[in-house]
Design a protein around this nucleic acid. Structure first.
Lengths: 204, 204
DNA sequence: CATGTAAGTAAGTAATTACTTACTTACATT
DNA sequence: AATGTAAGTAAGTAATTACTTACTTACATG
């Protein structure tokens, strides 16, 4: 809505993401937003409240996974493995491409730290995570119904899937690409395991 | 070695874990260790240096996964799924039981945050993660050789396995047990997916 | 032109915090 | 008994930080 407010919110997201909540200073946020520090306090009473507003401001944006799924819901003739492979690569691509997304991921990560101490934060974080896991669960339920997926707990499958992407994107953020090799190949291997499992199947 | 030093190191681990590096104060650490603040500075020049020493002090302790594997290396007649199930539950148990471990996990988690800004920290963290992933990879390589596991990239398998436990233990730490249900059941379901995959297998 | 609004400038306050200095106490070793 | 060592006490410094107050400037609207 308000240009100044939005600039402060954006700057806060960036600074919180890179410095953590405790490490972020209101001065630095104000600088980054090109406003006087006092303006920040006029608009958002306190630093704590600013964090809360950043959370509210980004709630819809955070649920980016949801969009990606809409691509798939209707096509019933593609096999599941291919579909997941495409999905995985899209997620990875979305993570890699947008610099803004990197900030958002780091912000989310900061929320984990902060959430341990502040219940409001952990609540917001929880609902965000549910937002990612829920559509994935529903997608898996659909696949089970369509007979493409064996009967497993869809939520567990979703958590397993999300675990991998959250964890590896975290590692990439901290260590750069040195920790593993090529992004897409790594994902291929994960999808292979996720779909087919690691067990050797006896051939009859 | 030195009782006082060790008490400070232990206290630092706890406080860093619960407050983060920036949030932790030297006063609080000193209190927690029952020493005068000045003693802390005499022993460990600076707060930064204290973090470094905590890292060094806990390097061996962190590689707890390694111990768990020694249980398995020799038994060749147990099937892989059962073995992994037991391993998974042991990891979960180790995470749940020891309060000290909770602090260590949170400390590790703090390192992720801090590692983005301090290369020495991310280095230490990296070598710790390798310590967990490496024995697991080797274990998988052995299973492949023994014909119990199909040929996949063992490192990818290890990362997938570790992802799940890191991510879920993180969630449990932040949200308590409310986020998912019973620990052991959840792990059963993960192992089921990890070993057999989610795809429906055509029956001939 | 008058008034209200959104923003800035400048200065400051009170608390916190990493870290220091100077001196003291308690204890162990020679 | 003398000396060294590890620890404490007390006080303080310089910087930072969240947040406030008082006043000013620029602009838009009636």
């Amino acid at each position: 809505m308000d240009d100044t407010e939005q600039r402060i919110l954006d700057a806060a997201l960036r600074v919180f993401a890179s410095e953590g909540f405790t490490g972020a200073t209101t001065r630095r946020i104000a600088e980054e937003a090109n406003v006087a520090e006092v303006t920040l306090f006029r608009k958002f009473k306190s630093k704590k409240n600013l964090l809360k507003e950043v959370l509210i401001n980004n709630q819809t944006v955070f649920s980016s996974l949801e969009d990606l799924f809409q691509l798939f819901q209707n096509e019933k003739d593609v096999d599941l493995e291919t579909e997941l492979r495409i999905l995985g690569k899209n997620i990875a691509k979305a993570m890699r491409d947008k610099k803004k997304d990197s900030k958002r991921r780091m912000f989310m990560f900061m929320l984990f730290e902060e959430g341990r101490r502040r219940p409001e934060v952990s609540e917001a974080l929880s609902s965000f995570l549910q937002m990612n896991i829920k559509p994935l669960s529903e997608y898996f339920d659909l696949q089970i119904k369509n007979g493409k997926m064996r009967t497993t707990n869809s939520r567990s499958a979703a958590i397993t899937f999300v675990s991998y992407f959250v964890y590896t994107s975290l590692l990439r953020e901290v260590f750069g690409d040195s920790f593993f090799g090529e992004h897409d190949e790594e994902i291929e291997r994960f999808i292979d395991i996720f779909t087919k499992g690691i067990l050797k199947v006896e051939e009859n």
